[in-house]
Structures are given as C-alpha cells and as structure tokens.
Design a binder for these strands. Structure first.
Lengths: 218, 218
DNA sequence: CAAGTGTACTTGTTAGACAATATTCGAGTT
DNA sequence: AACTCGAATATTGTCTAACAAGTACACTTG
C-alpha cells in the first residue's frame, strides 16, 4: 500500500491528491497517468481510478484522447494567451461593475496586503495571495456561475505557474502596485480606468509567461 | 431493447440523447433518473449509465447529492437571475471589445436575419436562432475558453426555456430589433453603447423569465 | 395519531473478464 | 543500413456480478 486516502468519497480524495501533485510539480507536463497505475498507487479498483482521471480531464488539468493514456496537460504559449485573454474578458468586466458601485472588496485588500508583506520571500510564495486577490474581485460580484467559471480558469493558470520554473522574473513589488492601482480606480468610481489598469496588469503577466514558454519549447 | 444508440462512445451517445430529452421537455424539472433505469432504457450496464449521469451533472443539467437519485435540475427565479447576470458579464465585455475593433460577426447577422424571417412562426422556433446570435458574438472573440464557458451557461439557459411553457410572451420582433441595435452599435464603434444595449436586452429577458418562474412556484 | 424501527431501493465501490484499439518492438525487405 | 509491415504487448472501453453503505418510505408500536 503506497498511499492511503481516507475521506467521504474515495474518488474526491484521489482527485484532490492528484491535483496537489500536479500543482506541486511532482507530476510534470506530459507525464503519463495510466488507470492501472493510479489504481495501484492509491490501492483502489481501476474504475475508481478511471473516474478520478476523468474528473481531472474535465477540469482540464489532464488531457487524453479515446483509448489513449491520460497525460498532464501541456500548455504552450498559445494556450497561455488563450487563458489570459479569457481572464481579461471576465475580470475587466468585473472591475468595471465594481467601480460603478464603488465597492472595494475587503478580501482583495487584505490579499494584496499579504503580497506586499512577502516581497522578500521566495517568489512562489506570492502565487497564493495573488490568486486570492483576483478571486476576491470576482467573488465580490456574488454570482455563483461567474465564480465557478473563473475558478476553472485559475486551475489552468496554476498549471502554467508550476511549469514556469524561473518565477524570479516576477517583480512582486510591481504586482502589488498594479493591484493597488486597480483598487484605487474602483474606489474612485472609474470603471474605464479600472478596466484599463487590469487589462495592462494581465497583459503584462500574459506576455511574460508566454515568452517563457516559447523559450522553453524552442 | 427500448432504445439502441450507436456511436463511437456509448456514453457520449447516451449523454446526447438524455440531453435531447431534457431540452425537449420529455424529462421535466425534478424528474428522477436512477442509474438502473437509464441502464435498462438504453440496454447498457449500470456503470455506463452512471458515467452518463455524472457527465450531465457536471454539465449541471442534472443534480444529485451523495447516495441520492439524480434529478433534472430545478431552476428557480434566483438561479435564472444568476445565469443571466453571468451571461451579461461575459457578453457585455465581448460586445465592448468587438465594438472597439468594429468587427461585426457575419454569423450574428445571419442568425438575426433568421429571427426576423420567423416572426409569425411558433415562438419556440426562435430559441435556436436566438442562441446562435449570442453564440456568434462570443465565438467572434476566437477564444476557446471563453466560448466553452459561454456554452456551459447556454445549457442552463436552454433548460429555463423548456421550463417556461408560455413563451408566447416573447416578442420576436422586439428581440430582433434589440439584436440589430447591438450590431449597429458595434458597427458604429461604440463600445459603451453596445454594452448598454446588450445589458438592457438581457435584463429584459431575465426579468421576464424570472417573473414567469416566480409565478409558477408561488 | 406520533415516533421509532425495519425493510426495500439506490448508490458507492470492488473484482474479474473480454473486446477493441494504441503502442511498441521486431522481422523482413529494399 | 534504413524503412516498412506485422505481431506482441499494453491500455482503455465496457460488461457482469456482487457486496457494503446510505436513504427513503412504510409499518409497527406506543
């Protein structure tokens, strides 16, 4: 018995653990995950492993074609652009509407404070609070489906992050400053300005990541 | 043997047929779908039926809790509002960006022409072209993930539509006119105007549907 | 008539098996 | 020696059968 997971639903537990291993880079991009392998690893039957794999495929953390072995999704520069444009479409509308009501989400403020507090720590430490900042913005709309859609995107974002080893190029101070600028425009009741700042913020991250991946593949 | 489905993946075929039956109102809101029942209906094993049901749950056309029978999703007025607000967030940003580039999607134009051509037909006939119009707008962004997110919303929209029997209250001429106004604002390169017209269009539909559902439940 | 209990139904998970398809490796040919 | 074709192997898709566990409903009992 390699790893025993105990929870309400066995499949849920396996999904959670596989997700963790993918996020932590233990399972790198392109790694094969056969059903039998997963079943043996977690000491469950193959149908159970199959269900877990299918769930992760629907989360688009894994990919597989018919009759083919599932693999950890490989994200190219084009995929990153697709993801970040989708983020931009969603988030810019969100901040626009938040600015229209001048509602600054408290959770976003505290998440950004967390980032400024960690400027000297390892760069990977700011991934969590950075995502929390953006999630807080979207969640402030109090729209279940929008939040769900955004979370599905963030799963893939996280995948890019682990793929890009040298995250040192992230200037945490600058990120925090851009976040602050977004909140400031919202507080000022400036929808167009808030959307513009956010667009720039995401465009910056997007091209940074895309350039990294293009360099890695070529 | 009741119904034989023949396709590449058996599960896909069952999912497609169940989806069709839900959309066509054959399976009404709240209808129970046990695994054994589905398995017998399509002459497949229970695990196969189970997988099909789980796929529809992840599409949120069905809902079920642990150890409980799956049921066709019941949409209340609050859910409809959630769905339509999510649509509004996505689509208004889409038309804003389309207007910024003055790109009028040809597919949207022809879809709206289809609506005007059917003003005297039964109201249910305009559901399809109406959805095609909105889908065309989103697809014009050429962003795979945005399109996917939008399609997941449309599944639930379609569910509302079948739920609301008396669709006669839909004024097809007005719908077509509002669509035309959106396209006109895009062609005029007026992002703010396009977004406003679209917001109004969706708000109109939203409150119409919500009022219907509130009346039906109360 | 109300409350607790028990039974039937349904789902969660497992085991084992077979068919169909992918992949890989080897043999034969050019 | 390189390439192509074919066979062996691995992997997935699906099935049958079964048991455990949890829910819901009816039935008994107070």
């Amino acid at each position: 018995m390699s790893q025993r997971v105990t929870a309400l639903s066995i499949i849920d537990a396996i999904v959670a653990d596989l997700r963790r291993r993918i996020y932590q880079g233990e399972l790198t991009q392109g790694a094969a995950l056969t059903e039998a392998e997963v079943a043996a690893n977690y000491d469950v039957a193959r149908p159970t492993a199959k269900a877990a794999i299918e769930r992760l495929v629907s989360e688009s953390l894994l990919e597989r074609g018919a009759h083919k072995t599932a693999r950890v999704k490989t994200l190219g520069a084009d995929s990153v652009r697709d993801i970040y444009f989708a983020r931009a479409y969603l988030e810019s509308e969100v901040v626009r509407r938040l600015a229209r009501n001048t509602t600054v989400p408290p959770a976003a403020v505290s998440a950004n404070a967390e980032i400024t507090a960690r400027t000297s720590r390892p760069a990977t430490d700011i991934i969590e609070p950075d995502m929390m900042f953006h999630t807080a913005l979207v969640d402030a709309m109090q729209n279940k489906r929008t939040s769900a859609m955004y979370r599905s995107l963030l799963g893939e974002v996280r995948l890019c992050m682990t793929r890009v080893q040298s995250l040192e190029l992230l200037d945490t101070a600058q990120i925090a400053a851009e976040h602050a600028a977004i909140l400031e425009r919202i507080a000022a009741g400036d929808p167009e300005g808030a959307a513009n700042v956010l667009d720039g913020h995401l465009a910056h991250a997007r091209e940074l990541l895309a350039a990294q991946l293009e360099a890695a593949s070529g």
